[in-house]
């Protein structure tokens, strides 16, 4: 992983407005990113299983999605060793302690509560990507990678 490498991000979120805001927020970040989006849990799983597709470095999953819930996707992904290097961010409106803990226990690295305004979103995404970059480049122990924002 080098400075000039682009960080591949996959966002699973069924809300088109949220998708748009997400993309715009990432535009303002120093680290170069490339974003793809899927709209539901089934589409997410299909995309990950496509062999001709490079896996994302970071995956953002909305907890509430049609067809397959975020938490089920999280669990399925974490049980597959092929996906062990992907950092998983649960991206949700919920601020319930129970949702946060449950996400971490099932293998999420980051719990990001959807911020209410654009500048906080930008700041939070910047933080997630920078810390993830440290884990990727400094050989830090990924099992310990828990971040709640």
């Amino acid at each position: 992983m080098y400075r000039n490498e682009v960080i591949r991000i996959l966002l699973a979120d069924d809300d088109p407005d949220d998708q748009l805001l997400f993309r715009e927020a990432l535009d303002g970040i120093k680290i170069k990113t490339q974003v793809e989006t899927v709209e539901n849990g089934l589409e997410l799983m299909n995309q990950l299983h496509q062999h001709d597709h490079l896996l994302p470095h970071i995956l953002f999953i909305d907890l509430n999605m049609p067809l397959k819930q975020g938490i089920d996707c999280l669990q399925e992904i974490r049980r597959n060793p092929a996906f062990q290097d992907i950092a998983i961010v649960i991206y949700s409106t919920s601020s319930m302690e129970r949702d946060i803990e449950e996400s971490f226990v099932r293998g999420a690295n980051v719990y990001l509560q959807k911020p209410n305004d654009f500048s906080s979103l930008k700041k939070a995404l910047g933080e997630v990507i920078t810390i993830n970059w440290q884990y990727q480049t400094c050989g830090l122990n990924r099992d310990n990678f828990l971040l709640s924002l």
């Binding site: 803990e101 971490f104 226990v105 099932r106 719990y111 310990n144 828990l146 971040l147 924002l149």
Partner: peptide
């Protein structure tokens, strides 16, 4: 740095280990 208190981190990591063993 992490958004969690040390005790929350400890609790979650212990649960996570149990969950991984149960799975």
């Amino acid at each position: 740095t992490t958004g969690l208190t040390p005790s929350a981190f400890q609790r979650i990591m212990n649960k996570k280990r149990k969950f991984a063993i149960a799975a």
